[in-house]
């Protein structure tokens, strides 16, 4: 059996075992807080709306066609899912990337400086199939767009 196969089986097993431990595991993130700026509440929120409330002070989001979330239709390996959020809106203040079915839905929040455009690209982990939501804050309002990504092998390792 190749190493790759072993790894896959391990991932599958740990995923199955992990779902029970998810609640405890997310709690484990707390003790090592070092950065005051890091928004603990937002990253601990289990639901999309809660995360947005804590992060941006509102969960009042309107869908916008000006935002494009680029992601693969099927992600064979959930540990590395390339995501690009491209917003053609003026005055983008921040871009949040949320994987709605992850144990910690809020993956990343990018706060853009005055000169930055509404473009950000990164790679995220996804535990299982679900929507990837890009939430863009511009002019004090929230806009979002989403894309479903099918995950064959989960990448959160639990």
């Amino acid at each position: 059996m190749s190493n790759e196969m072993k790894r896959r089986i391990f991932l599958k097993r740990s995923l199955a075992a992990g779902s029970v431990g998810v609640a405890a595991a997310t709690g484990l993130l707390a003790p090592q807080q070092v950065l005051a700026a890091w928004n603990k509440a937002a990253f601990e929120a289990k639901e999309l709306s809660g995360a947005l409330d804590a992060l941006l002070g509102s969960s009042d989001v309107s869908e916008s066609a000006d935002i494009k979330v680029k992601a693969p239709d099927i992600a064979e390996n959930g540990a590395v899912v390339p995501i690009t959020v491209d917003a053609s809106i003026d005055g983008v203040e921040s871009i949040a990337i949320i994987a709605s079915n992850n144990p910690v839905p809020l993956v990343a929040n990018f706060v853009m400086g005055p000169g930055a455009t509404g473009f950000v690209s990164t790679r995220i982990k996804m535990g299982k199939t679900g929507d990837v939501v890009g939430v863009v804050k511009a002019g004090g309002k929230l806009y979002s767009a989403k894309k479903e990504v099918k995950v064959t092998i989960g990448g959160c390792g639990g």
Binding site: L29, M112, V120, I124, G155
Partner: peptide, 24 residues
């Protein structure tokens, strides 16, 4: 001047990659 500041959870992949654009 800060052009980009990101806050991450553990949900970003191992050996993270980011890309963004800014003017000026």
């Amino acid at each position: 001047n800060t052009v980009m500041m990101a806050e991450w959870s553990g949900g970003v992949s191992k050996n993270p990659y980011i890309s963004f654009k800014f003017s000026g």
